[in-house]
Amino acid sequence: MNAAPLLAVEGLTKYFGRAPHLVRAVEDVSFDITPGEVLGLVGESGSGKSTIGRLVLRLIDSTAGAIRFEGQDVTKFPERHLKLLRRNAQMIFQDPYASLNPRLRVREIVGEALDAHRLASGTRRVQRIGELLETVGLQAAHMSRFPHEFSGGQRQRIGIARALAVEPKLIVADEPVSALDVSVQAQVINLLQDLRQRFGLAMLFISHDLDVVELMCDRIAVLYLGRVMEIGSSEDVSKRPRHPYTRALLAASPKADPDAPKIRRMLTGDIPSPMAPPSGCVFRTRCPAATEECSRNVPKLRSAGGGHRFACHYDLAYDEEPAAA
């Protein structure tokens, strides 16, 4: 029996601005995350990944669609009720330098959530902050320091400790290692994996790096210009990709699996502007096999079996190469 979703996103849409300068950042995105599961959102810059992360936590409001956390549609929550969502869902930000207030000591940064939700005070508050720092690989004595006294990797650990302070059920990790040195990235990824197992955390893990997502996630959703191109298990998406965009991302990976299926034509050009997305399939302007059908109709997600779905008009086996139009 499948577990009920902790998070269920249905038809999520977000537009910024007004016509004729309307930016279509996210368009009709749907996915779910069960308790303890990690779903990866992957795609190029401008694909809408970070916007989705902020929508999920109601840091920004959606244009349309539903975001259900434990069955409750949080898009309908009034501002005064969002405290309940923030207790159960927290974010780890991309930039460990910008996400910490440089004027506050670590005990104040980590302790803010404890104070806001009245989870600990006095001696117990200090003890709890020390425990959180040790949980993420720092020392309790570090709580008296300021952020500038730490390295980038250590600052990200402070951000993780802050997110863990309220004992959330869901973590939205927005490119949590992209601003770190390569040597430090693996340490933070290992820490997140350990915390996931230790606390049974569910995660929405956002990254542009398919290798990191494959390592970290149970399932992967591939985004392009605000739409889901492919979604399925990490194994299916990385080893049996059905969408040409997923194949191109895999082929461009610096750690590409030599045994994985290859796309003969690499991507050219840049992702189109969300102010003027292509008609039909938004990927068609860069797809090596686009046809007239692709310019006329938006492809719907179709099943490849086992929960693996992809949005393409043509159903090619993963070891087939699409023919040129």
Rank of each mutant, 00 (worst) to 15 (best):
M1Q: 04
A64H: 13
V136H: 14
V182Q: 03
G307I: 09
R18I: 12
V188K: 02
D315C: 01
R68N: 09
P288L: 11
A173L: 08
D181Y: 10
R286H: 08
L114R: 06
E321S: 09
L204M: 06
R302A: 09
R155P: 08
I129R: 01
F69I: 09
L138G: 12
H208W: 04
A4M: 04
D259I: 00
V182S: 01
K239L: 12
V56N: 14
V42E: 08
H243N: 10
G280C: 12
V237Q: 11
N88F: 11
K239I: 01
F199E: 01
S151Q: 14
F310I: 11
K169W: 12
T291A: 09
R264E: 15
P5N: 02
F146L: 15
V182P: 02
L316E: 07
C287I: 13
E70Y: 00
E37C: 10
T285Y: 15
D257P: 00
L133S: 01
R265V: 13
S47M: 04
A66H: 15
V237Y: 13
L223R: 07
Q185P: 03
P147M: 00
L195N: 02
L82W: 08
V42D: 10
S253C: 05
P5W: 03
V110P: 01
E214F: 04
F93T: 08
Q94H: 02
P5H: 02
S45P: 03
F16I: 12
D209P: 05
R103F: 13
V282W: 12
E214K: 11
L215C: 00
D270V: 05
L12P: 05
S50K: 03
V126E: 15
P241A: 00
Y245K: 03
L41R: 08
A304F: 09
N101P: 01
S178P: 04
E70A: 15
A324G: 08
G130C: 15
G17W: 09
E175D: 02
D174T: 07
D194Q: 13
I129L: 00
F205A: 03
G269H: 06
G159H: 01
A116C: 10
P168G: 02
Y224W: 06
L41C: 06
R58E: 13
L57F: 04
N88S: 11
A325S: 10
L133C: 06
L114G: 00
R54C: 04
E10C: 03
M143A: 14
A276V: 12
P5S: 00
T75M: 09
